[in-house]
Amino acid sequence: MYVGSEVRIGDLPLVCHVRGRGPRCVAHPAGPGMHWEYLRMPLAERDHTMIYVEPAGTGDSGSLPADARYDLDTYVKHLDAVVAAFADEPVFVLGHGHGGFVAQSYALTRPRALAGLILYATGAVADAPMLAQARWNLHRDTDGDAGDVEAASRRLREVLPSHFAHYERRRPEFAPLVDAVRCWPRPAADFAAFDLRERIPSISVPTMILAGAHDFVFGPSSAAALRAAMPSAGVALFENSGRFAHVEEAERFASVLMEFTRRVAHGGGPRHGPGPSVAAGEVLDW
C-alpha cells in the first residue's frame, strides 16, 4: 500500500509517506535536515503501516519563516500534529538519530498520544562539540549558504560511509543509499545543544532502544545510558551494524520491531529485565 498524506500546521504543510499495513509507526529521520528516503524500511512495511515524515525544511514539506527556528520545541509540535492526524488507531513513534531526540521530548510531553516509543541510534544528549562537527560536515563547502542543498548533500555523502559497520565489504548494497541521500543545511544550523538525561526517567510509555555495535556516535554506551534511565525499556544491539541497522541487518531489524509492537499491542507492556550492560546481538526483555 502507498498513500501520500499532507499534515498542515497553520499554513505549513508537512508531507508524510504512508506505506505497508499493520500497526501504525511514525518514523522521524535524523539530521536535522536529512531527507526521509534513507530511513525507508521495506521489510518493516510487511507488518507495520510506516508513516515516514518529511520534517519542515526538507523535501516537499514547507519551510519555516526566516525569523523562526528549527529547534526541538518546533519539531515536537510538528510530530504531535502528525501523530494526531493518524491517531484514530494506536501510534508508535520511531526516532532515528536527531529524530530520537524529538521522539524522547514528545514522549515526555504527550505520553497518552503514544502506543510505544522506538529510540534508534540516538541518545539523551546533544552537546556543543557534536553539533559543531555536524555543522562543519555540512557547511564547509557551502560558503556559508544555508540554502545550498547540493553542497550539503555532497558533503554528507562523503562522510556517511564511515557510519556503516562494513561499508567497503558491502559497497554494492549500501552505495545506492549513500549516493541518493539528501539534506538541507538550514535546520542543522539552527539546532542547539540539549541534555535530557534528568528528564527521560519520566518517560512512561513502552520503549525499545535499538543500536548498532559499530555506531561510534550513538552505539552501545548510548544505549546503555538510555536503558539505565529507563530500566523497563528493551534493548537490541545489532552486532554487524553502525548507524543504519535497518539496512545493514534489515531482516533482524524488522523482526525486533515487529516483536516489540506486537507485544505492546497485546498488552504486554514493559517489564523489568536485566541491567543496562548489554552485549552485541542481545535483545533484553521488555
Score class of each variant (00 low, 15 high):
residue 138 L to W: 11
residue 107 A to Q: 01
residue 162 S to D: 13
residue 267 G to H: 03
residue 133 Q to P: 04
residue 74 T to E: 11
residue 97 G to T: 04
residue 25 C to A: 14
residue 116 G to I: 01
residue 204 S to L: 08
residue 222 S to E: 14
residue 16 C to D: 08
residue 207 T to Y: 11
residue 275 G to A: 14
residue 125 V to G: 13
residue 106 Y to C: 06
residue 197 R to M: 04
residue 262 R to A: 04
residue 22 G to P: 07
residue 259 E to Q: 13
residue 90 P to A: 06
residue 95 G to Q: 14
residue 24 R to C: 05
residue 224 A to I: 04
residue 189 A to P: 00
residue 80 D to Y: 01
residue 278 V to K: 08
residue 91 V to P: 09
residue 37 E to I: 02
residue 126 A to F: 08
residue 134 A to F: 09
residue 193 A to S: 15
residue 66 A to M: 01
residue 217 V to T: 14
residue 277 S to P: 00
residue 4 G to V: 03
residue 67 D to N: 08
residue 119 L to G: 10
residue 266 H to Q: 14
residue 183 C to P: 00
residue 156 L to W: 12
residue 194 F to K: 13
residue 67 D to C: 00
residue 35 H to F: 08
residue 45 E to S: 08
residue 221 S to M: 14
residue 219 G to D: 10
residue 113 A to F: 01
residue 276 P to W: 01
residue 96 H to I: 03
residue 132 A to S: 09
residue 55 P to E: 12
residue 66 A to P: 06
residue 134 A to V: 02
residue 255 S to A: 12
residue 123 G to C: 09
residue 256 V to H: 11
residue 106 Y to Q: 05
residue 225 A to V: 02
residue 64 L to E: 08
residue 204 S to G: 14
residue 214 H to L: 04
residue 187 P to G: 09
residue 154 R to G: 02
residue 13 P to V: 10
residue 225 A to Y: 05
residue 88 D to R: 07
residue 59 G to R: 07
residue 33 G to H: 05
residue 111 P to Q: 08
residue 191 F to R: 13
residue 241 S to A: 15
residue 134 A to P: 01
residue 75 Y to G: 03
residue 84 A to W: 08
residue 188 A to F: 07
residue 196 L to N: 09
residue 136 W to K: 12
residue 192 A to V: 11
residue 229 A to W: 12
residue 25 C to K: 00
residue 168 E to T: 08
residue 187 P to V: 03
residue 240 N to V: 02
residue 53 V to F: 12
residue 143 D to M: 03
residue 244 F to S: 00
residue 108 L to A: 07
residue 186 R to W: 03
residue 221 S to C: 00
residue 64 L to T: 00
residue 191 F to V: 15
residue 271 R to D: 13
residue 69 R to L: 12
residue 179 D to C: 04
residue 97 G to V: 00
residue 112 R to Q: 15
residue 68 A to T: 01
residue 113 A to T: 05
residue 190 D to E: 07
residue 26 V to F: 03
residue 245 A to I: 04
residue 130 M to D: 01
residue 259 E to N: 09
residue 40 R to W: 14
residue 210 L to D: 02
residue 150 E to N: 03
residue 227 R to C: 08
residue 10 G to M: 09
residue 2 Y to K: 13
residue 261 T to H: 07
residue 67 D to I: 00
residue 194 F to W: 14
residue 238 F to T: 06
residue 164 F to S: 09
residue 170 R to D: 15
residue 18 V to N: 09
residue 29 P to E: 10
residue 149 V to K: 07
residue 117 L to H: 05
residue 161 P to C: 09
residue 40 R to T: 11
residue 237 L to S: 10
residue 16 C to I: 06
residue 279 A to G: 10
residue 79 L to W: 09
residue 218 F to R: 10
residue 75 Y to K: 11
residue 77 K to D: 10
residue 106 Y to W: 11
residue 21 R to Q: 12
residue 165 A to K: 07
residue 13 P to C: 07
residue 62 G to L: 11
residue 156 L to N: 06
residue 212 G to W: 11
residue 12 L to A: 12
residue 202 S to R: 14
residue 207 T to D: 02
residue 22 G to C: 13
residue 270 P to C: 10
residue 110 R to Y: 15
residue 157 R to W: 02
